Computed example of a mutant assay.
Amino acid sequence: MENAIEVKGMQKIFGEHTAINKVSFNVKQGEIFGFLGPSGSGKTTTVKVLTGELKQTVGDVKVLGIDSENFGSSAFKSQVGILSDNSSLYERLTIYDNLKLFCKLYGAPLKQIDVVLREVNLHDERSKIVSTLSKGMKQRVLLAKALIHNPKLVFLDEPTSALDPGNMAHIHRGLQKLNEAGTTIFLTTHNMEEATELCDRVAFLHNGELQELDSPNSLRYKYSTHAFHVETFKGNRLVIDNQPDQADQIRDLIANGEIKAMHTDNPTLGQIFLKVTGKELE
């Protein structure tokens, strides 16, 4: 199976409002796919359709080869992990006891608890009551819950929100390790640096429609002016067009030892997103 997710002509209509408008895309087996959009773009609605929480109005949707009509089946649920704004925990139980319950629910071995707790950097906190945890710690428990049954495909909605830089880096390493082992990851995030670091491809969603879909590097190249940005030792900052008739200027700067730093214009994903959609991520 080449694609973990296949979406063709998907629409989702609520009354007179079209939340998703004829969206088509594939997520390849084994990739980390970033799904980015400002609030109200239809991002959450799309994820809910892909996980079976909502039914599309029009179009074909397949996840792991399973048609959307069968998203409620045990075959689907056993292969998919979900961290969303609807994910919840038992507040009066410990971290360990929460995960023990989810092991029983998914038929996962109890030894998997230690594995996922190390992945989210909570192994030493396993006896803490969930109600006493910070928002960031609860987020990491929810991530552990999504991974407890070793799913083939994981939907992660803002998995590192509320995390400090150290724990964020730890989670990133864990997700990369998980992906290297073959797990496909569908990631929504407002952190463009996170998307750039983790994702093989990213999709920009705006007003219910896909605006762009490509690898971060390809998008950065596409929207680059390719001009050279030069900083000299005298503190001057120059922008030189990447054109043959500008070669002498660059050559002279190099020959005179004036260049302190030089790079081509490569916009960030955030800058590209703002240009494409006219909006910041919220």
Rank of each mutant, 00 (worst) to 15 (best):
Arg118Pro: 10
Leu122Arg: 04
Asn167Tyr: 03
Val154Phe: 01
Glu119Pro: 10
Leu178Cys: 06
Ala195Glu: 04
His170Arg: 12
Pro159Ser: 01
Thr132Gly: 12
Glu119Gln: 13
Asn150Trp: 12
Gln211His: 11
His123Arg: 11
Glu212His: 04
Arg126Ser: 03
Thr189Phe: 04
Met137Val: 00
Ala195Pro: 05
Lys145Trp: 08
Ile129Gln: 07
Lys145Asp: 14
Thr189Gln: 06
Leu153Glu: 03
Arg126Lys: 00
Arg118Tyr: 08
Thr189Val: 07
Gln139Trp: 08
Ala144Ile: 01
Val130Ile: 01
Leu205Trp: 10
Ile113Gln: 09
Arg118Val: 06
Ile129Val: 14
Leu133Cys: 11
His172Ser: 14
His123Ile: 14
Lys145Gly: 12
Asp200His: 03
Gly136Glu: 00
Glu125Cys: 14
Glu119His: 13
Leu213Lys: 00
Leu142Asn: 09
Ile185Phe: 00
Asn121Ala: 14
Glu193Ile: 02
His123Trp: 11
Ile129Cys: 12
Val154His: 01
Asp124Glu: 15
Thr183Asn: 10
Ala195Thr: 03
Glu119Ala: 12
Glu197Gly: 07
Gly208Leu: 13
Glu180Ser: 11
Val115Thr: 12
Leu143Gln: 08
Met168Val: 11
Met192Tyr: 08
Asp124Met: 14
His123Thr: 15
Asn191Tyr: 08
Phe186His: 02
Thr132Asn: 15
Ala181Trp: 13
Val116Lys: 09
Leu178Asn: 03
Gln139Ala: 13
Lys177Val: 11
Val141Glu: 09
Leu178Lys: 01
Leu163Gly: 08
Phe155Arg: 10
Met137Pro: 07
Thr196Arg: 07
Leu117Thr: 09
Glu212Met: 11
Glu180Leu: 05
Leu117Gly: 08
Leu187His: 05
Thr196Asp: 07
Asp157Val: 01
Gly182Ser: 07
Leu133Met: 13
Pro165Asp: 01
Val202Ile: 05
Asn191Met: 03
His149Leu: 03
Glu197Met: 08
Lys128Gly: 02
Leu153Gln: 06
Asn167Arg: 04
Val115Asn: 15
Ala181Arg: 02
Glu193Gln: 09
Thr183Val: 15
Thr189Asp: 08
Ala169Glu: 06
Glu194Pro: 05
Thr183Glu: 14
Leu117Asp: 06
Met137Ser: 02
Leu175His: 00
His170Asp: 07
His170Thr: 05
Gly166Met: 13
Thr183Phe: 15
Gly182Asp: 12
Leu205Asp: 11
Arg173Leu: 08
Val120Leu: 08
Leu142His: 12
Leu175Glu: 01
His190Glu: 11
Leu156Trp: 13
Val116Arg: 08
Ala181Met: 06
Glu180Met: 12
Val116Leu: 09
Thr160Pro: 06
Leu143Val: 10
Leu198Cys: 02
Pro159Val: 01
Gly174Glu: 05
Ile148His: 03
Asn121Lys: 11
Leu142Cys: 09
Ile148Arg: 04
Leu122Tyr: 03
Phe204Val: 04
Pro165Ser: 04
His123Phe: 09
Leu213His: 05
Ala169Asp: 10
Ala144Met: 02
Asp164Gly: 03
Ile185Arg: 09
Asp200Gly: 05
Glu125His: 11
Pro159Glu: 03
Asp164Thr: 01
Arg173Val: 10
Thr132His: 15
Asp200Ile: 05
Thr188His: 13
Arg173Asp: 15
Lys138Thr: 04
Glu180Ala: 04
Lys128Asn: 03
Ile148Asn: 00
Ser127Pro: 15
Glu180Arg: 02
Glu180Thr: 07
Leu175Lys: 07
Glu197Tyr: 04
